[in-house]
Lab assay of single mutants.
Amino acid sequence: KEQQNAFYEILHLPNLTEEQRNGFIQSLKDDPSVSKEILAEAKKLNDAQA
């Protein structure tokens, strides 16, 4: 469930490039146990690119 939530949120971050988004999603698939950390990174990058 946590992985699904992170997946959904990353898909809807407006400021990520397609490449960045795909990278985060691939990381989620590779290691779902760190989905919280991956989501935090994605949000940080999204904010930095706002």
Rank of each mutant, 00 (worst) to 15 (best):
K1P: 13
E2K: 04
E2P: 15
Q3A: 04
Q3P: 14
Q3S: 06
Q3E: 14
Q3G: 04
Q4D: 12
N5V: 12
N5A: 13
N5D: 11
A6C: 05
A6Y: 09
A6R: 06
F7Y: 08
F7S: 06
Y8D: 08
E9D: 05
E9M: 15
I10Q: 01
L11P: 01
L13M: 14
L13W: 02
P14H: 08
N15C: 06
L16S: 00
T17P: 01
T17Q: 04
T17R: 05
T17L: 05
E18M: 12
E18F: 14
E18K: 10
E19Q: 12
E19S: 08
E19K: 09
Q20M: 04
R21T: 04
N22H: 08
N22L: 09
N22E: 06
N22Y: 14
G23E: 04
G23P: 02
F24Q: 00
F24A: 02
F24G: 00
F24Y: 04
I25G: 02
I25W: 05
I25Q: 03
I25Y: 09
Q26M: 15
Q26L: 15
Q26A: 11
Q26R: 07
Q26F: 13
S27P: 01
S27R: 14
S27E: 07
L28T: 03
L28M: 09
K29E: 06
K29F: 08
D30M: 14
D30Y: 11
D31T: 09
D31I: 07
D31W: 12
P32M: 12
P32L: 09
S33L: 10
S33Y: 12
S33E: 07
V34C: 06
V34D: 10
V34A: 14
V34I: 12
V34K: 05
S35R: 04
S35V: 10
S35Q: 07
S35I: 14
K36L: 13
K36H: 08
K36F: 14
E37V: 10
E37I: 12
E37H: 09
E37Y: 15
L39A: 09
L39W: 05
A40Q: 13
E41W: 15
E41Q: 12
E41N: 13
E41H: 10
K43E: 05
K43V: 07
K43R: 03
K43C: 03
K43Y: 15
K43A: 04
K44F: 11
L45A: 05
L45V: 11
L45D: 02
N46M: 02
N46Y: 01
D47C: 09
A48P: 02
Q49I: 08
Q49M: 08
Q49F: 08
Q49T: 03
Q49N: 08
A50T: 13
